[in-house]
Design a protein around this nucleic acid. Structure first.
Length: 492
RNA sequence: CGGGGUGUAGCGUAGCCCGGUAUCGCGCCUGCUUUGGGAGCAGGAGGCCGUCAGUUCGAAUCUGGCCACCCCGACCA
């Protein structure tokens, strides 16, 4: 029977780690803090990437590619950005190895190959990109520049976790340049909306849109917009950020343009990104103790067909029907796997596809053929039913939509149930430890209070919701006046 | 990076205190029987015990360095 694995209740963190392995998504590599994304995991990321990429193009962006290395002098140009990332940068100082004279077969760094100037492995690409944009922009006619890059970046974190925080990770980073502040802010908000739409409609993951407080803001940004999602343990996960960079990078890299009147001004900028971290968000939003649960729109395999048979002859009959079904589903754009591997028995396959989160499983055997029926199991509710083979393709097409909706509604309900409106700091301190979740509280707007809460409770202000209602209140810590509630939670 | 823990076959483990080259389960290979919820029986393969050094006649076992992982902090998307 099923092996014993950690449940969410017992040990949420262990459950997550085991699940990533059991579902064959990723594993630790021989490099500290870096993961190998396995084919099944990468297939999910590819779906995310393709959908997002199409959305970026729909909104007028083009892809380009910039170097992985940034000379230190460029990196330090925008002071706040440099300062913010300095303590987590990988630095290339040499360009050659040579045979170790004292240790046969081993190599050492050739001290004669020291670089004149160190190269920073990009933790983010604003610096190299704005240094490039300087050469591309002279006039308002050159604007806007709407570019996205799919790339890997490196941030030398202390503690890493598969997908959630790895030293190297994959992401996309959009970098745009605009003639006006208004246009740049519109772009920032537009991309936050793209991320929101993707999270909710594809990942089936509800999010809260908001602004970051000054202390949580991206280094070098005037304003950071974000979407925050609630994981099943009640912790918050920042799923995407969109930054209004003001003229900070334009000033640092001296990027000016001439407007219609011939007046020179610095260019306005934005940057926005999501990463392989979304994989972690996806896992922690829907999965259960049996394994991964995938929303149909991101499932590499949407339907799996498992044949049941006792001999070659039965397999032949069953296969014929199964392939017919596969073809009908395929023509509706549904991805189907017919698993006729004879080395695995049906029970094994059932368990396997459950762990991998395949939304719909069909089992077909001689008994079903005789009755013109098929057994169908849905992963989200674990419901099993026997249905007619007639009109099966249509039924499944609708079912996949139902599953997608159900997952979203389930997550939405969970989120609603775990948002607490609290006015007393004492009550907050108690509840953050007992019930967890998101807390809507009044805050006096000062960094001091924010720091105090963080120090005393480990919770941080995740965001100031964009749709926060104006409401007279008092900061739960200091009692000073506050006009709206902010989202407070422990975060990944 | 600080505190604590762990590292033995693909995975999970026993053995370590009290030194004498290794236990069990799953998986893997072969054959037969099986196939509607992780199959059964029989036979078989696979490990210089994370790594490097030291102590010793002899090290999985004792000592030290390093590496990796887990938990708790600090940092962070």
């Amino acid at each position: 029977m099923a092996q014993k694995f950690a449940t969410r209740e017992e040990d949420y963190s262990k459950w997550y780690n085991e699940l990533v392995g059991r579902a064959d998504l990723a594993e630790h590599s021989g490099v500290k803090g870096c993961m190998v994304i396995k084919p099944y995991g990468f297939a999910i990321w590819e779906k995310m990437r393709d959908i997002l990429d199409a959305k970026f193009k729909e909104t007028g962006h083009s892809n380009a590619y910039f170097p992985i290395f940034i000379p230190k002098s460029l990196f330090e140009a925008e002071e706040k950005n440099a300062e913010g990332f300095a303590k987590e940068c990988a630095v290339v100082t040499h360009y050659r190895l040579k045979a170790d004279p004292n240790n046969k077969g081993k190599l050492i760094v050739d001290p004669d190959s020291k670089l004149e100037e160190e190269l920073i492995v990009r933790p983010t690409s604003e610096a190299i990109i704005w240094n490039t944009y300087k050469g591309w922009i002279q006039s308002y006619r050159d604007l806007p520049i709407l570019i996205n890059q799919w790339a890997n970046v490196v941030r030398w974190e202390m503690k890493t976790r598969l997908f959630l925080r790895t030293t190297e990770f994959l992401w996309q980073e959009g970098h745009t340049a605009h003639a006006t502040k208004t246009e740049a802010i519109q772009e920032t908000e537009q991309m936050l909306d793209v991320y929101t739409e993707f999270s909710e409609n594809y990942m089936a993951m509800p999010v809260i849109k908001g602004f970051k407080t000054e202390s949580e803001r991206f280094a070098g940004a005037d304003e950071t917009y974000c979407i925050e999602a609630m994981m099943q343990d009640g912790k918050a996960l920042q799923a995407g950020t969109s930054h209004f960079l003001g003229q900070n990078f334009a000033k640092a890299f001296d990027v000016k343009f001439a407007d219609k009147e011939g007046k020179l001004d610095h260019v306005w900028a934005t940057s926005w990104g999501v990463s392989t971290r979304l994989m972690g968000a996806l896992i922690m939003t829907h999965s259960d103790d049996e394994g991964l649960v995938l929303p149909p729109k991101l499932a590499p395999i949407q339907v799996v067909i498992v044949p049941i048979y006792k001999n070659e002859e039965e397999l032949k009959l069953v296969s014929e029907k199964a392939l017919e079904i596969k073809k009908a589903l395929f023509s509706k754009g549904i991805s189907v796997k017919f698993d006729d591997d004879d080395n695995r028995r049906p029970g094994w396959k059932f368990a396997e596809y459950e762990v991998k989160g395949v939304p719909v499983r069909l089992a077909i055997g001689p008994r079903d053929l005789a009755e013109n029926k098929i057994e169908l199991a849905r992963r989200d509710t674990k419901e099993k039913m026997t249905i007619s083979l007639d009109g099966l393709d249509l039924f499944i097409e609708n079912l996949l939509n139902d599953i997608q909706d159900n997952l979203y509604n389930r997550a939405l309900k969970f989120k609603a149930e775990n948002i607490h409106y609290v006015d007393s700091y004492q009550e907050f301190k108690e509840k953050i430890e007992t019930v967890g979740g998101f807390f809507m509280v009044h805050w006096d707007g000062t960094a001091e209070t924010e720091a105090k809460i963080k120090e005393e409770t480990k919770a941080t202000i995740r965001c100031i919701p964009l749709d926060a209602k104006e409401e007279a209140g008092k900061c739960m810590v200091t009692g000073l006046p506050s006009s709206k509630r902010v989202v407070l939670a422990k975060a990944y």
